[in-house]
Structure formats: C-alpha cells, structure tokens
Design a protein around this nucleic acid. Structure first.
Length: 435
RNA sequence: GGCCACGUGGCGGAGUGGUGACGCAGCGGUCUGCAAAACCGUUUACCCCGGUUCAAUUCCGGGCGUGGCCUCCA
C-alpha cells in the first residue's frame, strides 16, 4: 500500500489511482535559460524515485510521467539578448545540457517531455474556453484570469483572497479587475517572440503552459502533480484555477506533492555567498550516483542541508554497497525496504534498511532507487598513472618479502602523498583514490 | 506584517505516549612487520517554558531560532 502526503489535504493519504492501468504523473520541469543547479536537482531525483516506485508497484507499462520544458519566458528572452544568440539556440542548448545532467543523476527519461512552444494552439484554445465560460477577460492586449470567478481560489496554498490582498505586493496593473488576477496571455512587441491569437500577437503566461500541456497529455484529471514547494503559490494554485474552471470543477490532480528546499552548508544558496553549484560543475568531481545518493539521504519534504561532508559520506556508503552488490536485473526488494518507500517515499529509512539487506535485496533495492551498482560508475579518477601504481605495488611487495620495511613504507607513504591508498588483503594489495 | 513548514547525540538522519533505528566520525578489539582497508564491539540525543497524562522527545499552548511563500524562483 502506497501512502503519499498530499499538500491539498496536509495529510498522508492512501494512494488510490484513478485508473490502476494508467497512473498519470505531471512534474514541472525546467525553464531553459541556464545550467541547472543543485537545488534544481532535488525534484528531478525525488520524482524520478516516485516514477520508479509507481512502475514497480503498478508495472512499467501502466505509468505515464510528463515533465515539461518551458522554452518561452521573459528570462529566456533577456538571456538570449545578453548572449546575442537566437532564443531557439539558447533553449535547445540548455535543454540538451539539462538532459545530460539529469541522466548523469540516474533519472529515467519521462514518458512525455512537452515543450511549451509546441503547445501554443492548445493554450490559446484553453484561454478561449476560459473567456467563454466567464473565467477570463481581455484588456489592453492582455488576457487575465478572473480569480473572483473561482470561489475556492487559494485552496492549495491555504490562503483566502482577502489574506492575499492584505499582504499583496503584486503589481497592480490598471487593467486588472482584481489585483490577484494573473496573466494568461500577454502582447509581444515586434522583436519579442510571439504568436498570432484572437487577442493579437503575443505569448502565453507561465501558468497556462502547464495546464494546457497536462490536459493534452494526461487528460482533465490525473493522479499526481509534483514540484518544488516554492511552486505551490502562485504557479500550482493558478494551474488549478485554470484547469478546474475549464473542466467544470473536475480536480486537476488528486494528489499534490512538493519537495522541500535545500540549503548549502547551512546557508541559503546564492551566487554572492559563493555556494551556488551547478550540477554540471559538481559532476566534474563527484559521480552522479553519489549526488543522487546524497539527495535521498534526506526525506523529500524535509528542508535539506546540502554539504560536501555529506557528499563524502555518500560516496563512502555507496562504495561499500557496490563492493557487495552485483549489478543484476532482478528486482527483488525486501518487504521492509518497500514498506519504507511506500510510506510517503521515506528514502532515508529505506536506505537504512539496505544496511541490513543481503546481496540480492541490496542490489534490488539500490536498483529500484536508480543506482547501477557498477563500481566503475563511482570510481574516482586516479591522480596518477595506474601502471605506475601497479609498478610501485610490485616493488613494495618485493621489499616486504625481503623484510625491508623501511623501503616498503617509503613506497606506501610516497603513494599516499600522491593520493593513492593501499589496501593489503589476503589476495594481495589493491589501491583506491584517497579522499 | 500575513500564511506555512522545520528544530533529535560530534555530524547526517528515521521514528515513537513507556524497552535510546540506522549511517559517518570517535573509542576498544581482530587482522597486519607496522599501518590502512575490512570485520566485531561500543560512548554521546530529542531547542526553551508551561499544560494534559501514571508516563512526553512524541499530544496541546506559548516562546525562541531557521527556512519557504506572499514578486521570477526547485
């Protein structure tokens, strides 16, 4: 039995699919204008684990995972202008980098990966339906959603319209009926990307993109919608407002799942503090599977303190696991392991079960979590030529045989100084990179 | 200012109304020429103040601290 915490109800609920033969999951993907950072990696990994768990429970063929790519956005426009490149060049390049990064993190490709620009007609159609049903209005080239037309607006964020207005710091455009009304369509000037629409040449607002893509790929209602906790308001609240207004109140998603934020070394991640790390940079020194493991050591809803110390621990733990776990295709997992995962994706508890697990269960559990168990994948790059290391080991063995321990120790210390750690076992001497 | 989370031993991190998960580090031991690695064993905890209770780290209230949202944001 799978239980998931639902942001909508603020409780853990038993997960019961709308259709067990077709589980549908939607997760908000990246806006492609720059390299993804370590904070972006968390939802990708978390929802990849959820995807894998759903496939394990319901069967690979019965789970559909949609994750969008936002490739029309004001940040993209300004970045492209800064770099002096075409928007499409920037978005295609950044999307490719994103795919390389998440692949290195062990994430499966989603079933669908819609790009916003490919769904403009669906967005226009949805906006038109919102206008026709009295939930939206056009004004000065903009189309706005009328939050007053949705009585339960604020139900996900647990905030009433009055509360929002009290603390409102939103831009109060003169053409808005209500300050909280948000943009569905906005006009584009000649040099801005735009599409012809009944309201003139323009581009979609951010929120309508997800509503339209989700409808096209997953239908009016689906099982799970995920994303970072910062997306609860306004993005997900607005998605709900749009979709449910069009679909006559049918719930957009039954379960809403949000991952917590992470801090780096106990501080907010920011470029000015010098603790801003892209996935790309980290992959130069750390195997992707180590980054993944580290992420799963904290429950997805907990705030996470991301540290290099934790990364080292993760590497050590993974090496010890891989030393005994053979990469196998078998998907056997222990009951305790599965139970932990099924209890709202309790990965820290699941990982602790692996310390108790024997070979098959260990490999199966690691496999279900998206780990390869291939030692080479987490091997550190040796700081010197492996042949020279092997030669030194032979020389040291000879010295030891002659009981020239001073010479043997000199060789060992010499290698240690170069970052190579020797391990003497019953079957001879092996080495590993010192960390 | 409003709303919402979180606060567990040196570190990471589960969990629970009553027998102190688990991992890392540390310490002791086995092994070793000596180490390292590996293996075995092991010390240290529940932010503060009230309340409920036979019993609270666990429930309730208040406080303090940290973070998130209210504006683009994983």
């Amino acid at each position: 039995m799978l239980r998931l915490y639902n942001t909508l109800s603020h409780t853990k609920e038993e997960f019961s699919p709308l259709d067990p033969s077709s589980i549908r999951l939607y997760v908000c993907g990246p806006t492609v204008y720059d390299f993804a950072h370590i904070g972006n990696a968390r939802p990708q990994i978390v929802f990849d684990v959820l995807f894998r768990l759903l496939r394990h429970v319901y069967g690979d063929a019965h789970v559909t995972y949609a994750r969008n790519i936002t490739d029309v956005d004001d940040k993209i426009m300004s970045r492209a202008a800064e770099e002096g490149v075409a928007i499409s060049e920037l978005t295609v390049r950044t999307a490719r980098q994103f795919h390389e990064d998440v692949t290195a993190l062990g994430c499966l490709p989603p079933t669908h990966e819609p790009r916003a620009t490919e769904y403009i007609p669906a967005m226009i159609a949805m906006i038109r339906r919102l206008i026709d049903s009295g939930h939206a209005y056009s004004a000065e080239g903009h189309v706005l959603f009328d939050v007053g037309s949705k009585p339960d607006y604020g139900k996900l964020a647990r905030r009433s319209l009055d509360e929002m207005m009290a603390g409102a710091r939103v831009e109060v455009a003169p053409y808005k009926m209500n300050p909280m009304d948000f943009v569905l369509w906005k006009p584009s000037s000649g040099d801005q990307p735009g599409w012809e629409s009944p309201w003139g040449r323009g581009r979609p607002g951010w929120h309508i993109e997800c509503s339209a893509m989700a409808e096209s790929l997953l239908g009016d209602s689906f099982d799970i919608h995920g994303g970072g906790i910062d997306l609860v308001f306004p993005h997900h609240e607005n998605e709900i407002a749009q979709s449910e207004s069009v679909h006559h109140g049918a719930p957009l998603a039954r379960t809403w799942i949000h991952n917590g934020f992470l801090q780096v070394e106990g501080e907010k991640m920011s470029k000015s503090l010098g603790n801003f790390f892209t996935i790309r940079d980290l992959l130069k020194d750390w195997p992707g599977e180590v980054l993944r493991f580290n992420m799963l050591r904290t429950h997805y809803r907990q705030p996470m303190n991301w540290t290099f110390h934790g990364l080292k621990e993760s590497w050590t733990a993974l090496e010890r696991f891989y030393a005994v776990a053979e990469p196998v295709l078998a998907t056997a997992v222990s009951a305790d392991f599965l139970e932990a995962l099924c209890d709202d994706l309790n990965t820290p508890l699941a990982l602790s079960e692996l310390h108790r697990a024997r070979d098959v269960d260990l490999a199966g559990g690691l496999g279900l979590l998206g780990f390869s168990c291939v030692q080479d994948r987490i091997a550190a790059k040796p700081p010197m030529d492996p042949v020279a290391i092997a030669d030194a080991i032979v020389a040291r063995a000879a010295a030891r045989k002659n009981r020239s321990f001073t010479e043997a120790d000199r060789i060992r210390d010499d290698l240690a100084g170069k970052g190579i750690l020797l391990k003497d076992g019953p079957d001879g001497t092996t080495w590993e990179v010192k960390r």
